[in-house]
Design a protein around this nucleic acid. Structure first.
Lengths: 222, 222
DNA sequence: ATGTCAATAAATATCGATATTTTTGAAAGG
DNA sequence: CCTTTCAAAAATATCGATATTTATTGACAT
């Protein structure tokens, strides 16, 4: 049973299966940035009708992973240095706000969720589930802001950033910096409910990663 | 010839026509907040197949004007005080950033665009085109930030706010405050390239309008 | 009355075929 | 040699019909 059948089996609707699969294809670069997405080819590859594919692509527009051009179909969102810089800037602004709001509303329950998310991430080091655990940790940090729109924006920006990480990873070098120390710093500050310290640590984490990635992305136009 | 035919004639694709029409229906309240949107009914009303309607609704999901629930269709995004407060907060944060960036990059060309936008808005006072001119003025303020994602977010949030204004307008009272003075203040500060002053004026404009609307929206849950 | 269950009705999701539009590529003209 | 033009090919957009899923109703038991 291949990935497509698994996704179709698990997910209730063909549209949702297509959404998740295409999303993954764009994030991993299987559908390269800026490239035209041909409905017919995708339709066959995913083994479903054109309607759910089109609908999935329309939904991916929300996430700024797909661009829709009236009467001439869809394309994977282009990647550029300028776009990457914009994502970094917006992330810093929004996550600063979300994290402060999260800490402001801190409860023992949130603290426990955070402890677990951090633990799971450390546990998953080097494993295939690390990416998921990492995302879950970052999500848990902001969760408590109880601000659905902000969460949505942050989640979208996280994914867009992952895409650039994957783009950079296809270049030769690998991350050297000790990420887990940075995560621990953010985590400790959040648990201590020190918003300034936590935010500073989080933003510095993003900016360091950003600088690092920007260097790897030298082959990008824009 | 009715509105639908006009929209279909002007717009190249049925999907785009549906997108604009349904968007308008939600912003004006013709499709009430939180209400289920039945494909078949819309399909007949817009006189087109189900596919473009579904696709338009999927696109409106980007704008947070429509919610999609797998296997049980679409609904107009619910409205609540909490949601309204969130929109206001995000607008303030993002537009502050965008306006400062816009002013930082100020050029004579931008200044001229701003002058015109402000003039058109004043000219359109009391006219049916005021809403468009008002939106154009606010857009022009942020335009020069040259940050497509930020512009998109700001534009989305502007529309979401308009929806609440329309919701409030259906209540009895009307705006008393002198809006044009506030606009003039923002405008003058921007032209003087005083970012702090401009941002303060803009945010105060939003917060005053926000407070005013919040009072009108007493009939809302949440 | 109240809750459950099955049968029915309604609505969504999806398919396959067709109409429209854009793209391609080769021939003609400057 | 470069542009323009037009027909063929390819791709998108849309429709109408059908399969699936969810919601409703009313009979029946508690």
């Amino acid at each position: 049973m291949n990935m497509i059948e698994i996704a179709r089996g698990k997910e209730t609707s063909a549209t949702r299966a297509a959404y998740l699969l295409v999303r993954d294809m764009i994030l991993t670069g299987a559908l390269p940035a800026g490239e035209k997405i041909k409905i017919e080819a995708l339709r066959k590859r995913l083994d479903m009708g054109a309607s759910p594919v089109r609908e999935a692509l329309s939904l991916l527009t929300s996430d700024m992973l797909v661009e829709r051009i009236d009467q001439r179909g869809f394309r994977a969102a282009p990647a550029s240095h300028a776009n990457f810089a914009e994502i970094l800037k917006l992330r810093c602004a929004l996550e600063d706000m979300a994290l402060r709001q999260s800490i402001e509303r801190a409860t023992p329950e949130w603290e426990e969720r955070l402890v677990l998310a951090h633990h799971h991430m450390n546990r998953a080091k080097e494993s295939a589930t690390f990416e998921d655990a990492h995302k879950a940790f970052h999500r848990a940090l902001l969760d408590n802001a109880a601000s659905p729109m902000m969460e949505r924006y942050c989640s979208q920006l996280y994914d867009l950033n992952i895409r650039y990480r994957n783009l950079a990873a296809s270049e030769k070098t690998y991350q050297r910096r000790d990420i887990s120390t940075e995560h621990a710093e953010i985590f400790e500050a959040a648990v201590q409910r020190d918003a300034d310290k936590a935010s500073t640590a989080l933003l510095s984490h993003y900016r360091l990663t950003g600088d690092y990635l920007a260097k790897q992305l030298a082959g990008l136009q824009g």
